[in-house]
Write a protein that binds this DNA or RNA. Structure first.
Lengths: 345, 345
DNA sequence: AATATAAACCAAAACGTTTTGGAATCGCAA
DNA sequence: TTGCGATTCCAAAACGTTTTGGTTTATATT
């Protein structure tokens, strides 16, 4: 049998013949309430199964105890994997950090209405802070949130990275390291299969690659490709048949790396014996593939921790100075860079 | 320069010298307000950028305008793909249905504290209804929500499916159809690589497979495998070397199907020419694989629509009779069931 | 005994909305 | 003039919490 009414501060107060104020303060842990009364209150609260009504609390405190993410519309293909998976982990990390903080998800598709959607979300005071995903180089959302003075942190840098909180992977360092990795294995003809420049990290990746190549006095070659069906495969076919005799392939995504392997197979080239291929993001396909793909992984947990650390003061209602954090990639060594190549060398 | 205060009903009312009530009713679209006043009110609201404070509204209406999902802890591998991706699509569909409904995400890891987490979430009245994911055969969450009289719908059936709302894919029909599909292609030795029985749908899948096989008077063979690293591959190797000369492989997941292909390659068997392989879930790997994998896809959108239709009355504050919906799988034909087999036949 | 200090408590206001139960105004028929 | 129904408006209460600015009671100090 269920109680027909939710217990409130008032019901607890009435049962003990004390004021609502005292009940509230007792449960909030204030020191100006007698230890004995506190225990009584806590007992009754427990018995009644009291849980504070969040709407009421939010109304009076002005805090939402929630952070918001306005997602872009899913692509419907593997490109969503990173975002959705990250979301899962971030949510979990947030819950571990403080189980009373909600993650509120809504959608703001890129386009005309995007900023309005943000505006309405901000104005309704549903959340204390925002996490902005899939940042763009010049990101109007960043401008809006800054202007409206709403706390937020971006996942990924923007052109105005010095003016807002952000967390990002150190793409430059990561790609420099994997380039060096292939150079150390004896590769001299190494190509970077990058995403178009429109993607902000593309530039950073290229810089990392180029700096390692230049240090080794090797010629650089960068090719860009979209992730649309068939495109990376064709690009890979071209490269494998080029005069430059590329043996090292550094790819902006595991999906691209996988297509390089397929292209090699098509041409009768054994990727394990003759090539060194490195992907990025540690997508499921990288471990399933044959050969499995050496890849750069950036820990979801490290990202989440950094984001949460930055968001934390805002959730508590404080203001905080701008912060940012570069998370290192870690190399996951697999078969696509087996050392058999260097022995041939 | 920003206004230093959020506009409220009161500020609008004062500016027009009318009552808060009228402003509220005008914006809510009630008929008892003069068309001219309504227009004035709407103009001022627009100019001031008025957006209702949700906490206040929720407090008085008792509705949260939100639905909650308490997620399990991610596995950290490809098994998360379906859940996280589904989440992305469901969120989008919900937003399309009504942009004012929030999706509130929190976590309730399976285990001792799970029900307490649910209880606190329920009692804080943060959401109007729940979507329960990764349902288990006997699911204590279902019992709790039913007992507490909180509206919810599960994604996937349970043993007590007749006592709650649910949406599920018609695994039985789907697996019957793909079995028939392989039979029609001339396969006679068809094995089902299923998940363990602990997973509720395993049984339904087996039933579908068995009924098609029995109708064709073919012997059935069911093998179960976990998705742990290496396991499906070993199972596939065994099957491919068995006396039974299996040529048809129906797999409970694309990941398993992919491992069958890998095992075939290892044994020098050409999967395209000699086998018919069918996966499930249309994971990214199924289209990337070579040969690409014929698979069963259940439309995220169809699921989301069904779920939202069931949830809708609760969001409006109505009660509603129990409902459920079976969503059909659709077959995505790819290379792993190319017809070259039947021509050999 | 008077006074200051500390401990324990509380009434009332505030947060911003919706809803209830009328009140005021107007036109029109009788 | 009265009465009546529409139309248009509104004061006040309510939702459940936190916070403010106290008051009361007990204890210590002079």
């Amino acid at each position: 049998m269920k109680k027909n009414k939710k217990p409130t501060l008032k019901s607890i107060a009435e049962q003990l013949n004390i004021s609502v104020t005292t009940v509230s303060r007792a449960l909030a842990g204030y020191q100006d309430v007698n230890e004995k009364t506190r225990q009584q209150i806590e007992k009754v609260a427990q018995d009644l199964g009291y849980v504070p009504n969040l709407a009421a609390r939010r109304l009076v405190t002005g805090k939402a105890d929630a952070i918001g993410i306005l997602l872009p519309v899913p692509y419907g293909d593997m490109r969503d994997h990173f975002l959705s998976n990250f979301l899962l982990h971030f949510g979990q990390a947030l819950h571990a950090h403080d189980p009373n903080i909600d993650l509120v998800i809504s959608y703001a598709p890129e386009g005309e209405q995007e900023l309005n959607t943000y505006r309405r979300f901000i104005d309704s005071q549903r959340v204390d802070a925002f996490l902005v995903m899939r940042t763009r180089r010049y990101d109007p959302r960043v401008d809006l949130l800054t202007l409206e003075n709403v706390p937020f942190v971006t996942h990924g840098r923007t052109e105005n990275a010095d003016k807002h909180n952000w967390v990002d992977t150190d793409a430059q360092k990561g790609f420099e390291q994997v380039t060096q990795y292939l150079i150390d294995q004896g590769h001299t003809s190494i190509v970077l299969l990058n995403f178009p420049e429109r993607i902000f990290t593309s530039q950073l990746r290229a810089e990392g690659y180029e700096s390692a190549m230049q240090r080794a006095h090797l010629p650089t070659h960068v090719v860009t490709t979209e992730l649309t069906e068939g495109t990376p495969y064709k690009v890979a076919l071209d490269l494998l048949q080029s005069d430059r005799k590329f043996t090292g392939f550094i790819c902006a995504s595991d999906v691209i790396a996988y297509e390089v392997i397929k292209a090699a197979n098509t041409l009768g080239i054994d990727p394990m014996q003759e090539l060194g291929i490195i992907g990025c993001d540690n997508l499921p396909v990288s471990s399933l593939s044959q050969p499995s793909i050496t890849t750069l992984r950036s820990s979801f947990d490290a990202h989440s921790q950094a984001l949460i650390e930055i968001l934390d003061p805002y959730l508590k209602g404080y203001t905080a100075p701008l912060r940012n954090k570069l998370v290192n990639y870690e190399l996951v060594e697999r078969q696509s860079t087996s050392t058999s190549f260097s022995s041939v060398f």
